[in-house]
Amino acid sequence: MSDEFGLVEPQEGEAFGDEWEEIDLSDSAADRIAKRKDRDFDEFRMRLKDADQFKVEQSVFDDATFAAIYKLVQDGYINAFGGPISTGKEANVFEALGGDEADVAVKIYRINASDFRHMRDYLEGDPRFQSIGHDKGQVVMAWVRKEYANLERAQRAGVRVPNPIAVERNVLVMELVGHADDRARRLSEVNVENPQTAFEVVREYMRRLYRAGLVHGDLSEYNLIIHEGELVVIDLGQAVTIHHPNAVSFLERDCRNVAKFFSRQGADADADQLFDFVTAEEEADDE
């Protein structure tokens, strides 16, 4: 693992306040395609169901999920599917060929298998989702749109995250960091040769997230990956605004997890000092 970790620069002139994107949870184009079920969509759905990488998902991918993939293909975001990169309790991630012939990651949340209560804990209190109902499908779709919005905001703040490309219903298309046969490794899987430098990059990214109005909420060595000497923050679906009622406790947990990992690696990392660094007022940095 390289001992060089370059920081991404924030976008010039970018300022963050309490403004938040309004996220539309009404029926999407994919829902309309699934309801219409014309011949082209039916043929596409059957081809996808017959594909080896999707056969095991037939019981948990509904017609609207296939319609979401169909819409992303129609819009040019996906040209061809590869194999699965990871399989989780709530989502599967597949390698795919994007519209510009670059490899992308397609994250597909499984509505019937997702942890509904876990998601609501993070959504409730977020000003973007004050009117969300109790429909499980709506909660999952809100989660996916929230992840897309969080990735955009983190990227603008100068935090290295996978570039978000498109979202449709419960399907998220984003940059594939590395390749399926040479995937980026989680920090938990590698020997960190320069843990102090890596820790300082991670704490700076945590501070930038906080100043952009976000707390990751599940940050640890399992949600930090390394590829070609670059640290990347992943899995921002659960990230909450700093005004979330549990934001402070989530941040304290993030600080404990990060400090504990890097301390084991030999870095000078303390959870309380990390919390103070992340939440310090911007003016204090220039003193």
Score class of each variant (00 low, 15 high):
Ile242His: 03
Val104Phe: 08
Leu176Pro: 09
Asp235Ile: 08
Asp18Gln: 14
Leu236Thr: 04
Phe5Arg: 10
Ala157Val: 04
Glu21Asn: 10
Ala113Ser: 14
Gly229Met: 13
Gln11His: 04
Asp103Cys: 07
Arg39His: 11
Phe262Ser: 09
Glu282Asn: 02
Glu124Gln: 15
Gln58Val: 01
Ser249Phe: 13
Asp24Arg: 01
Glu221Leu: 02
Pro162Phe: 07
Gly88Trp: 09
His216Thr: 09
Lys37Arg: 14
Arg128Lys: 14
Leu214Ser: 01
Thr65Asn: 05
Gly133Ser: 10
Glu57Met: 12
Ser249Pro: 07
Phe81His: 00
Arg169Ala: 01
Gln155His: 12
Val104His: 02
Leu274Asn: 05
Asn194Trp: 04
Asp121Ser: 05
Ser188Asn: 10
Arg120His: 06
Ala239Ile: 07
Phe262Arg: 13
Leu72Ile: 03
Phe94Lys: 00
Phe16Arg: 11
Leu176His: 10
Asp181Gly: 05
Asp270Ile: 00
Glu230Ile: 10
Arg145Glu: 13
His216Ile: 11
Glu282His: 08
Val159Trp: 06
Tyr222Trp: 13
Asn257Cys: 12
Val93Gly: 03
Arg153Gln: 15
Val240Pro: 00
Leu214Tyr: 07
Gly17Met: 09
Arg36Gly: 05
Tyr109Ser: 00
Ala259Pro: 04
Tyr70Gln: 02
Asp103Glu: 14
Val56Leu: 08
Asp31Glu: 06
His244Pro: 02
Asp268Phe: 06
His118Tyr: 13
